[in-house]
Simulated assay, not measured.
Amino acid sequence: MSKEFTPAEVAQNKSEKSMMIIIDGSVYDVASFIDEHPGGPKILKRFAGKNASKAFWKYHSKSVLEKYGENLKVGTVKEAAKL
């Protein structure tokens, strides 16, 4: 079972040890990928702890997520309770 994170929990993970981003409701820890990212570490650091969906899809195709996503995915974003 996949771990669920609130957006606030993701926002707390902005360090070199745990750098989480959200893409389409999935949570990825990109800390281990930061030195391999072709665009450099700066852009990953800018989106650390945030929803990076819009920026990700602007520069990447589905194949990139298929290639790297499974190894970096740590969970999903927990849906907010609807009142």
Results as ranks from 00 to 15, higher is better:
M1V: 14
M1C: 14
S2P: 15
K3A: 14
E4M: 03
F5G: 03
F5E: 01
A8I: 10
E9N: 10
A11C: 14
Q12S: 15
Q12N: 15
K14C: 08
S15G: 14
K17M: 11
M19R: 15
M19S: 11
M19H: 10
M20V: 02
M20E: 06
I21T: 01
I21K: 01
I22G: 02
I23M: 02
I23K: 00
D24H: 03
G25F: 01
S26T: 07
V27E: 02
V30M: 11
V30L: 08
S32D: 11
I34M: 11
I34F: 07
D35W: 08
E36C: 04
E36K: 13
H37G: 02
H37M: 00
K42E: 13
I43S: 09
I43R: 09
L44C: 10
K45P: 05
K45S: 12
F47Q: 01
A48M: 08
K50E: 09
A52P: 09
A52I: 06
A52L: 07
S53A: 05
K54D: 11
A55K: 15
K58H: 14
K58W: 08
K58L: 12
K62D: 06
S63M: 05
S63Y: 00
V64H: 05
V64L: 13
L65Y: 02
E66F: 01
Y68T: 08
Y68P: 05
E70K: 12
N71H: 13
L72V: 02
L72H: 07
K73S: 02
V74M: 04
T76F: 10
V77K: 06
V77G: 03
V77E: 07
V77N: 06
K78Q: 14
E79L: 00
A80V: 09
K82S: 10
K82R: 12
L83W: 12
